[in-house]
Each structure stands twice: as C-alpha cells, then as structure tokens.
Design a protein around this nucleic acid. Structure first.
Lengths: 355, 355
DNA sequence: GACATCTACTAAAACGCATTAGTAGCCTCG
DNA sequence: CGAGGCTACTAATGCGTTTTAGTAGATGTC
C-alpha cells in the first residue's frame, strides 16, 4: 500500500509518478494524458478511461508546483489571523470556523495556508508576500474593521477574497465578497429576551473597538435600547481577553447604580464576568443576568450555565469557503448573509431582583 | 507602495516581476541573477550588489511554484489536526502551539499548511496526498499515539517529520524527530503537591486512551502513587470533552468513598469538573481539590481559580518548528526534551477535609 | 609564448504540467 | 474525387526558477 515497501528511508527515495509515466504505460502522448485527466476534449472515451485507470493504478496526483507554474492556480487559499499572542486561543471560534472552511476546501483538494501574526500591518505584509510568491489563489479575511485597509490592498493585488463577518459591502469595497450575520437582529433578540424578563438597565461589554462587528453591535444596542425604553444602557470595549472582561465587570458592578444584566461579546469574557460575580457573592441570575455572545463548551460547563447567542460557526466557515471557491471559478462578488444566530436561554438569565 | 496604483481590479492585472525582468534591467543573464540572489558563487561583488538592489527595487520574491518545481523544496510544512468535530476548539493548546510554530517558520519564509480532519486514517490520507502533490517539505505530527501508524508512513514517504509530544523515539521510529515534555516528572510534581497537602485518595481523569501521553501519565500516576503511599488511586479515560469530563466527575463523586482530589488532563475538563462540584454544593478546595493539566485563561477565570500545570506551549511549538527546519536542512533525527512544566498552585487545591 | 588555471559570466536543460498549434485519418458533400 | 470539416491524437512551447555545462578573457607559469 505504501509507495515504498518496508524501510523507505534508506532505500532509493520513492519517485512520484508523473504524467510521462502514465503516457508511457498507456502508449499515448503526454498531452493526451493531460487532456484525459482534466476532462478536456481531444481523447476518445476508451483511451480516456484507460488513462484514468493507469493514473489511479500508479497513484498519480498532479504535482502542485508544476500545476501552479503552468496553469494559473496554486490550489491554496490563505487565512491569516492577526491577534496579539495574549488574546490567542481563548476563543473556540477559530478552530470551529477553520474546520468548516476545510470541509469545503478538502472536497476540492484546495489546501489552506494558515498564519497567525501579531497585528494587521504584518497581516498585510503576509498578503503581499503570498501574492508575490504566488502562493495562494485567494484569501479569507477575518475580523473585519471599521476602516479596513485589507479589502483595498487585496483588490489592488487582484487577489480574490472573502471577508468573514463583514457588513454588506459598501461602495468602497466592491471587490471582495463577504459573509456575515445580522448582528442587529441578533442584538434585538438578546434585548427582547432581557426586556421580557423585566430588565431595564443593561451594559454591553463589547470586544475590540475598531472591529466592524463591535461597532455594529454597539450601534444596535443603542438604537434597540432606545426603542424598548431601556435607560442608561451603554457599551464598553475590551480586547476580548478574560482579564479585561473581568476588569470591566468589576468596574460595572462598582457603579452606584449597577445594571441588572450584562451582555458579553464573547464566551471567555462572559465566563470571566460570572466568576467576578461569584467572587463578590452576587447571585446569578438573582441579582445579575449574564448573556454570552457566542456559545462554546465553556458556557455549558460552568455553573450556572450561561445563556448564549448560538451561531453555526463551522457553517459560517463552509459558506465562506464555498464563496471563495466560487470567486476563484470566476463567480461574481457577492454578499452572503448567514443564518441568524439564535438565543439559547440557560440558567444565567432570569427576572431581575425587585428592589 | 502597492504594486498596482489606484484601482487595480479593473486595470491590467499586476504582473509579478521575474528573474528575467531583473536580468534585463541589470544587463546580465538570468543565471547571474539566480546566483546573486541565492548567494551562490559565480558573480562579482559589484554585480551581485547591483542585482540585489534591482530585485529590491522591483519588489521581487521568488515564485514559490517555480522554485518548488525546480529545486526540491516547496517552502511549506504541514500540520494536520485529527479531532472529531465535537472536541474541537475547546482547548487553547493548538492555537498557542501554532503561534509558536509560525514565529520560527515565518523567519525563514516557510509557510504552514494546516488541515483539520476527523480521524487518523484521513490524516494519513492527507499526508499521502501532500506527498504525491509535493505540497510540503515536512510535517509536524501532533497527538502521538501508543501504536502510531504515522511515523512509519512518513518514513516510508521520506517526508521529514517532527512528532510533538512523543516520547523519546524507540527503535521502531528512528526516522522522525520528536519534541516532548517529561510527563512523568510533571505527574510527580502534581502528586507531590497533593501529598504535601495531605491528600491520599486521588483520581486522574485522563484524556483519550491510545494517545501516547495519556498512557504515559496513567503509568506515571500508578508508579508515583505507589511510591508515595496513595491508596486506590486510578485513572479513567475520556475524549477530552467537557461533557465526558463532567460525566466522569459525577461518577467519581457518586462513589461510596470519593477521592479528595481530582487531576484532570486538560483545562476544559477541569472546569467542567469544578462546575459539577459547584452544582452539588461540594466546596472546592474544602471537600475536593482540583488540578488542571495545562493552563489557560479558563483556569484563571473561573471561581475558584484552578491550580494548573503550566507549560510553555508556544515555546513547544517553536522548538518543534526549529527542529523540523533543521531536519529539512539535513540535520540528524533528534529527540528534544522541552522545559519541564511547572505546577502553579491556585485556589482549587488545599488540605482535604478532616473526616 | 604556449598552456593550464582562475574569474565572471552566458547558454541551455530540466522540473511536471497545461496548452496551442499542428497532423494524420476518416467522413461528408457537392 | 477533391475540398472542407470533423475526431483523435502528437509535437512543441511556456510557466519561473535552479543547475549544469560551457566560454570568453584575464592571470599566472615554466
């Protein structure tokens, strides 16, 4: 089964079969093989089958370098994650996303080039290098920002891209597709849930300022809160880390007239926040209700279990990957809306204490 | 600064500068350029400098496909993560590891091909495909198992590999390097800590059976517990998920003579376990001490904060990446020991309740 | 001053594939 | 029966790089 029988390390290195080998064995020219294997016209069904069989038999796979050099495609797409090391790996979001992405890519034998860097400038440098080296055919962009240099850069490099989590593209970014979820509606459903329980004073512990969805959620909170008649609702921004989540929670609870509910922009901060409540002896949800934006094992594992906004993250990844492949096949730039996240009420939300 | 001025999407697509362009501009042959740019002899210092300057000026980067086709190297290494979707993204381990890996790779302009798959068979298939497509120069292997087919496969494919978290290579795997931490000593330090506090009955909630480090930890527990005079210590295996961690904890606490301390093999299960304790009203550490193997934000964020075995995961990644690069440069197969993890006592461990 | 030895280069081939431009052989049609 | 048009192929070229072989010209040697 293995190409090298037995001990392959010391014996002659295994040679990969090439199109030439197939051609020789099938008694045809190399071009015929190429045609046959790529479904191009120019070979009869009979020889096509024969060639296919030979290729199968030899375990042939196209040499990615040769194909990339000859054709236009490298068969790779890229994903770079710009996060300071400190805030890395605390969220389950990325691996889920990536796993969805891969499901789609693997089917088409497209590989994923992955890189984590410290900041967005380095991220841009990576794009430039990938472009110059002709390493990738397109990229997936995460953590879109309010004023984001990346779409423009990628457009100028002519590198197809799909922004994940971006709003519908404005007239400034007509070159990149996007896949996004309706944060406004999601925020509305969160607030409706809290309003229904009787809450009127809430605070939103948001993620990084500058990120597009942070700003959208903050805006949504404001308008929606106004509509429902909440008073004094507001957002504070953090870096998504447990540390800042806890710190924000402490400050909020120290205020003279603390809120009866807090909405956290990710699971990690929500957990950190509920730990702060526990350490102060504030009962959840008796005196404080907590909502996590984004579910994860975390939210279901701590006590009390956290009410969370659940979204199908790997589905999100699948959608984005599919759209990128479509773009690579010459499809139009699109803006795709993912399924609306739904609120899953658990034990951390309840009616506020009556004063 | 950007290769295409202004709106690059509709104008002529940007052409990447090639060696030929540099050659023309510098008035030399293409080979001279290649020599100059790769530090090979055969060009005078003067022209070498001139060529380098031109390349810089044009923003030239070697076309990865051409280089891969011509030379032997693709400039990529691979990492595949075989995890059932269910247990994905709950640990912070991987992103940390990958971030360390990249630090080293990026310096050498080596890209990382990343893939997540469902099981180890698919993982092997990925290796075969990567090999056949000549996509990667080497791979990093994670989650080594007791009877692992991968080292042999990779050796037979002549694909340099570094196993991360493996024991010192036995005589059966003389072809792959490995980077590992001393689990035995780590387990000893955990048990010493608990013993000192007065614990005599402990249970170890381990990870997946079949994983090399799971088996090693289980063995270490047994021998070390025997040495220290623990009675009835044992290990149970899980799939690393929060669900199984919680379930195992429940079963353990339901026993007639429950342990006074539990050691969990990852952070997620430890958190799940402490939630179970909380839901049953069992005080931690008053009635039950908890230790997490592997630290993360999680452990510091919940209440009480969990005593954890801290290791420098990204350092681990750096070590592994460096070793892989050394292998690619023709270095010998080595077995590298990483820094010993250290126990960080926090609030979740204390003296057991006196009966 | 003929010959070997450097140095600094150039020409050409190779890597594995896709693709374009042929080219036989056969069929059709007027 | 010869022009035109198919079908099923082959030959040749190019992609951008590395590498091997080769070649002028300068320098040294006896």
């Amino acid at each position: 089964m293995t190409p090298a029988g037995g001990d392959g390390a010391r014996t002659t290195p295994v040679r990969r079969p090439t199109i030439k080998d197939i051609a020789r064995r099938a008694g045809v020219s190399e071009s015929a093989v190429s045609f046959a294997l790529n479904g191009r016209p120019g070979v009869s069904q009979g020889t096509r089958d024969r060639i296919r069989r030979m290729a199968e038999e030899l375990g042939w796979e196209p040499n990615s370098a040769a194909r990339a050099l000859s054709g236009e495609r490298s068969g790779c797409v890229g994903l770079v994650l710009a996060r300071p090391a400190r805030t890395l790996g605390v969220e389950s979001f990325f691996l889920q996303l990536v796993s969805g992405v891969q499901e789609v890519l693997a089917d088409r034998k497209v590989a994923l080039l992955f890189q984590v860097v410290e900041d967005i400038e380095t991220e841009c440098a990576v794009y430039r290098r990938w472009w110059a080296e002709k390493r990738v055919d397109g990229v997936l962009v995460v953590d879109p920002r309010a004023h984001d240099p990346r779409p423009e850069l990628l457009a100028s490099l002519d590198l197809p891209a799909v922004v994940i989590g971006a709003p519908a593209p404005g007239e400034d970014t007509p070159h990149v597709s996007s896949v996004w979820a309706d944060d406004t509606a999601a925020m509305a459903s969160v607030l409706a849930h809290l309003h229904e329980l009787g809450h009127r004073r809430i605070v939103h512990v948001a993620g990084m300022p500058g990120l597009a969805h942070t700003e959208r959620r903050i805006r949504s909170l404001r308008t929606e809160a106004a509509r429902l008649g909440f008073d004094g609702s507001r957002s504070v921004t953090t870096d998504y880390s447990d540390a800042e989540g806890a710190e924000a929670t402490r400050r909020i609870l120290d205020e003279p007239d603390p809120p009866t509910a807090i909405v956290f922009d990710n699971d990690v901060m929500a957990v950190a926040g509920s730990a702060v409540a526990a350490e102060r002896g504030i009962p959840v949800p008796g005196r404080l209700s907590i909502v996590a934006w984004d579910d994860s094992a975390l939210c279901r594992v701590i006590h009390p279990r956290l009410t969370a906004l659940v979204r199908d993250t790997s589905g999100f990844g699948r959608l984005a990957a599919q759209e990128l492949l479509d773009r690579l096949d010459g499809g139009p730039v699109r803006s795709i809306q993912a399924e609306l996240p739904h609120l899953e009420p658990r034990e951390s939300t309840g009616p506020p204490a009556t004063l």
